[in-house]
Design a protein around this nucleic acid. Sequence first.
DNA 1: TGCCGATCATAAGCCTGCTTATTAGACTGC
DNA 2: GCAGTCTAATAAGCAGGCTTATGATCGGCA
Lengths: 159, 159
Amino acid sequence: MAQNHDFERAFGFVLHEAARLLSKRFDQKARAIGLTRAQCSVLFRLSMQEGMNQARLAELMEMEPISLARLLDRMEQAGWVERRADPADKRAYRLYMTAKAKPVLERMLAVGLETRGEALAGISQADRDRMIDLLIQVRRNLSERGGEPQPRDVAGVRA
Amino acid sequence: MAQNHDFERAFGFVLHEAARLLSKRFDQKARAIGLTRAQCSVLFRLSMQEGMNQARLAELMEMEPISLARLLDRMEQAGWVERRADPADKRAYRLYMTAKAKPVLERMLAVGLETRGEALAGISQADRDRMIDLLIQVRRNLSERGGEPQPRDVAGVRA
DNA sequence: TGCCGATCATAAGCCTGCTTATTAGACTGC
DNA sequence: GCAGTCTAATAAGCAGGCTTATGATCGGCA
């Protein structure tokens, strides 16, 4: 059936399932080092730039600050990251990796590469590049920040 | 920095963030009808074929049976789906939409189209088709079923 | 018939992430 | 200096999804 065909190709479902399966595979591999995909994502970003506050990191990760706060709670508890009071802003913390985290960066990278290799098997470099460009466009289209200011014509509805 | 460039283009992060943002947007729009993206996914599949058991539906949705069971708990509670005992197998249930669910199918479709439109804005039809083909390939690569039997050469590492 | 492995569904416990709402501090303008 | 607003972080409560483990049933095979 044409409907069935459309269904199997439904963009949202396919995108979501691909992302979920990739996370699952990454988590299976990364369990040996005691980290999850989301936690690795934090550590990777901190490895690029330490000292960000939570709001900034949440923005980079395209997630809500509260979601990141919970994630950081677990990571701090497990000794991967450290919150240091921001001397210039009593509300904020600055985020740093711990000494424990630095040695595992390479293993995280290896897990990432291996997982990506499985996910992209049989896809040419040109197609990989193209797919990533397109996904970046999708992300940009859906991002709150950076896009148009979201008209949200719900006038009359109080938040 | 080249490293930074690689980072922003990291396949796993981009894929995950795009999928999450799309889910979020869908959920925001679908809240008015009292359904989530995952629940809509179930209803869409049941609208194509009712009477499946949970194991079969979980397989179609590329998820673990227990995850689906929980999802169905909430949906049954909310009156969207019905579990009927399978006369031929006392372990299994057969899944059906309720009368309440059928009238909202069209609204779900509309929400899906609208959300997809936002996500794919500025992307040509050819590129959309290509991206979906590539995502389907990724999903197939990562699927437990249908793929190769997963060598799992982690010998030596204990989980 | 009876055993034994496979299969269907589920329980417990956890991580990720969101919405909504709150507290504390920063900032802007008068 | 201070009121009003904005911002950083968090609390409460929930949905979605996974791993690991269990109970029940099915089915093949001796």
